[in-house]
Write a protein that binds this DNA or RNA. Structure first.
Lengths: 343, 343
DNA sequence: ATTAGCACTCGACCGAGATGAGTGCTAACA
DNA sequence: TGTTAGCACTCATCTCGGTCGAGTGCTAAT
């Protein structure tokens, strides 16, 4: 069952060659490509064995071999050389003082796509079970109130509340006090119906405003668990003939347009280990992407704010490069906020 | 030069038929398709004339005719029947109380794409020369200050400012007063270096905070003039064989990924008339889209907040349907905020 | 165990009809 | 004079057979 050294070398040769060319690779090529000094005939015998063991596949009788999913898996798990690899120009992107997380992520996705020639996606870091920091109500004009909700990690949510009756400055002050003293420091889960009804009670005739504020609080969390996913380089798939026939391409790009689907891909199911996950072919959850491979990496900014970076490419993706780059990027992203981001 | 009635009928027939089938249309088809009761031979003569006049084109000698850009233009300008057309299920989308403009626009783009089978894009309404309504500074924690900037039209921008030294509540109050009394009600253009330096002067040792706030104000505007463009249905182009060969498709979808390019398409150059613009083939500004047609409509929410909806499809787009739908949608979008959006 | 040799397989490519939709032109007709 | 039937012609598309070549599996010799 175990592969002997020679078989491994041949398997690596087949895979590497196929990664580069995308063409089935034959015995003669391998005989020259490696320094085993074996004739093609010998290689052929070995390849027949490798095929029987399920590591490589013959697309049709008189063609060379291509790696099977199992073959790729073996390569990724055991044969691959995993150096951390710098993403070109990524440092510049990360150092630029980007005001908005959104823009930063978009840039990262883009650079990564350009560098890898695969499609990329990145999900915004989402907070879990964070605490409400404070609430601020202020009057915008006679019949609009602005509620600002700040959550730990400085996630901010604004909501404009329409007023039916005018409110005095004093009332606004009171409401501010009421909301802040009762809610600040509470976990999201702790803001339950009990507290809400107490608040409403105390607010008296202004209970609708409390309702609206609570809404805003709920939104502040939901918005972040929402589908904030940025993609780039979807059209890179056209660079790989095996994916670029119009039917497959259409399906892939549709999936890529649909953030709901992507969020499924980006929720790591078992992020122990390095935090880098490789899904090959059928291992990909999304059916429409089972001709592809997906590599994901989770990154963590501060205090449990985790997001995920994903790369989608053909099964003959350059795993070594991709995994290396993601490792590097993961590290850089994590460092970002640790230095507390001085300009 | 002017087309007689019969030529018009034939031209319409050619165009309509081609819109449906995407195949060059021959004289025999027209002879049956119309109720002119003319033989194909007669039609052929007429078609030869139409070709000489530049309204239709023969892809190769022994094929039927397809409309030229000029033909489409003539059709759109003069022959087309322009009824307002309801977009299915759009009302539901617009009535749903969508908190965020962003989500609303995404939904609209999506529904429109599904309904038309073309690619759609929509730019968020941007304010022009609007006034600052008010500024609010509040302490988030010991070393973070939150600045909230509200602009007319209730566009809100938050910025978290990192503090090097602690600030007393009193100082914050003072800064609030300073900023609000000096800036509120001012036009964006009116906040110039003169005012800024006066402010900084008055703020004394806290002038950096003024800087940061001014930054936030600048951002509040810039963010909106930014590339807030949402797209949907890019993959619809695969439904049209003339666009779906991999090279063209790749180019188109790349352009569609690139918001900068799209924003160029969505800035109406001459929005007098109905506010609906049709660009056919070479008339499209973007080179990579000159095999397509683009239809745009500007909508206006309140007080000069204008955005644009765009549809990209093959030149043989169903202009009648698209223009009708956009007219309807434009109206509905405008109505949205006029009713001040009660739930 | 390795290799040379050979027959065999099968996709890719190419050129030669065959097909058919559609044309332009001409001559006849109302 | 406008309309039409008829006909030769064009040209993209399809299909079919043949060739080519990369690559295989098997066998026999080393």
């Amino acid at each position: 069952m175990e592969l002997d050294e020679r078989k491994k070398i041949i398997l690596i040769a087949v895979i590497k060659n196929y990664l580069e060319t995308g063409e089935p690779v034959g015995s003669r090529t391998i005989s020259k490509y490696t320094d085993l000094n074996l004739s093609s005939a010998t290689i052929r015998n070995e390849m027949a064995d490798l095929e029987e063991l399920g590591y490589i596949i013959q697309p049709h009788t008189s063609a060379g071999r291509i790696p099977s999913d199992k073959g790729y898996r073996f390569y990724v798990d055991q044969l691959m050389n995993d150096k951390v690899k710098e993403v070109e120009e990524m440092k510049e992107v990360l150092l630029e003082k980007e005001e908005k997380m959104e823009n930063l992520l978009k840039q990262v996705a883009k650079k990564l796509a350009v560098n890898t020639n695969y499609a990329t996606m990145i999900s915004a870091p989402s907070i879990h079970g964070n605490k409400l920091k404070f609430i601020q109500l202020s009057r915008v004009d006679t019949n609009h109130l602005l509620a600002v909700v700040v959550i730990e990690g400085n996630v901010i949510k604004n909501k404009v509340i329409r007023l039916d009756d005018e409110l005095s400055d004093e009332t606004i002050l009171k409401l501010n006090l009421l909301l802040n003293t009762n809610l600040n420091g509470l976990n999201i889960e702790e803001i339950n119906l009990g507290i809400i009804s107490v608040l409403k009670n105390q607010a008296g005739e202004h209970s609708e405003i409390v309702d609206e504020v609570i809404d805003a609080v709920a939104d502040a969390i939901k918005a972040d668990e929402d589908l904030e996913i940025y993609t780039s380089g979807a059209t890179n798939i056209f660079k790989y003939p095996e994916l670029s026939d119009s039917e497959r391409a259409s399906e892939l790009i549709s999936t890529f347009e649909n953030k709901e689907d992507l969020s499924e891909l980006l929720t790591a199911d078992d992020e122990a280990e390095t935090g880098i996950q490789v899904y090959i072919g059928e291992e990909v959850k999304m059916k429409s992407m089972q001709d592809c491979s997906v590599v994901t990496a989770t990154y963590e900014l501060e205090e449990g704010m985790k997001g995920t970076i994903g790369i989608v490419g053909p099964k003959r993706m350059d795993y070594e490069k991709v995994v290396g780059m993601l490792k590097n990027l993961k590290q850089q992203m994590s460092d970002l906020y640790k230095n507390d981001r001085k300009d």
